[in-house]
Computed example of a mutant assay.
Amino acid sequence: MSYESSVSRLPSPLKDLVVTSQADVGKTDSDKAEVAQWIEKVAGGEVALPDLETQLVPRTYIVSNYLTAADVALYGALHPVFTQLQPIHLYPAVTRYFDHIQTRPSVLTAANALSPAFSSVSFDFASAPPIERKADAPKKKEKAAAVAEQVEPTVVAESKDDKSPENKPKEKKEKKKDAAAADNGGKKKEKAPVGGKVAADDAGEPMPSMIDMRIGHIIDVKKHPEADSLYIEQIDLGEDTGPRTVVSGLVNYIPIEEMRDRYLCNLKPANMRGVKSFAMVLAATSKDGKDGGVELIQPPPGCKPGDRVYFEGPDYENAQPLAQMNPKKKIFETIQPGFTTLDTKEAAWINPVTKSVHRIRTKDGICVAPNFIGASLS
């Protein structure tokens, strides 16, 4: 079904909101089709909050990396729900998404024109109850889809406990204090720096400072023998154990000669088509989507392998990162929608609640995207 047909099925004043906002209907044919599908779902009342919550955890917008008419339609459909219930603790990702969309200039202008039908909704995030994070039932490991979007030199978020198969503990049982030490990468817990906070565990709300990001140097790269879209890289992180093996889905976006001898950043480990990847490179995807290009985030000049990468701000820059992120907690997936590049092309995380901007940096300067403004980082 076409975009026009889908919009025509929306009830008033929701249809008026979508039309008045003049939001993008999609920059590519695939995006246009997805936008029409979402508006069709809204028109048919087929959007369920639990399903939407799951889909929005890793996303800023419902289609691609920019605001579309689908977001405006979803916002309008959700407006009566949040006006009456405000289920912040039940659907935190949907709440974050709703609040973000209602503050977009084009949406705000359209909503004001149709007031009071779409009056602004205020949220008391400070007094909202903490989110109860329950462990998921055991299941097969999922492939890290985010890797397919990684590109070039950027910041590396690493996992200290899982550097190589040989480093896994051999003992079946340990005393409680030994087990606690093992959970912290085999090291004793470090004291918080003076004036700083420590992210000693993953209790409470996810914070960007929980992610351990380091500068890495690609010393070798080749194509994955079993997957045409994947590179296998050897990345020096300044560790005594030697370089890490990293698998990145960048073949279709970055030529292999541009991957060699690059400095970058890494994330969590994962299995990629039979090859264990012990980190992930941080890349920027154009605001126009992958069709607009993907590029590696570049650290500032003078960086060395192993240098710490952190977020500006007193709450984050002196905090101790987690030794290893629990994939069930979805810490990175929760924080990632706030990753972007500013008008200066500087990499940053924008707090979805306070809208404060925290640039991503090392001691030598700010990490940047070579060409992209408003890019999504993953």
Rank of each mutant, 00 (worst) to 15 (best):
M1A: 15
S2Q: 13
E4V: 12
P11N: 13
S12Y: 10
V18S: 05
T20H: 08
S21K: 03
A23M: 05
K27W: 06
D29L: 12
K32G: 13
V42D: 01
G44C: 02
L52F: 09
V57E: 10
L74Y: 01
L78Q: 00
P87D: 06
P105W: 00
F118P: 03
S119H: 11
D124E: 10
A126D: 15
A126P: 09
P129G: 05
P138Y: 06
K140F: 14
A144I: 04
A145F: 11
A145W: 13
Q150R: 04
V151W: 11
E158Q: 10
D161T: 07
K163Y: 08
S164W: 08
E166L: 12
K175S: 13
K177M: 12
A179V: 13
E190V: 13
A192P: 02
P193C: 01
A200I: 06
A203Q: 07
M207E: 14
I215G: 00
I218Q: 01
I219W: 05
D220Y: 14
D228Y: 04
Y231F: 15
D240A: 12
P243F: 04
R244A: 03
E258V: 00
L267P: 00
N271F: 10
R273H: 15
S277W: 07
S277H: 05
F278Y: 15
M280C: 04
L282H: 07
E295N: 02
P300T: 07
P300E: 06
P301V: 07
C303Q: 10
D307M: 04
V309A: 08
V309F: 01
V309W: 01
P314C: 03
D315S: 12
Q320C: 00
A323I: 01
Q324A: 13
T334N: 09
T334E: 12
F339S: 08
T344L: 05
K345S: 13
W349P: 04
I360H: 05
T362K: 00
D364Q: 15
P370M: 04
N371S: 14
F372S: 02
S376F: 07
S376Y: 08
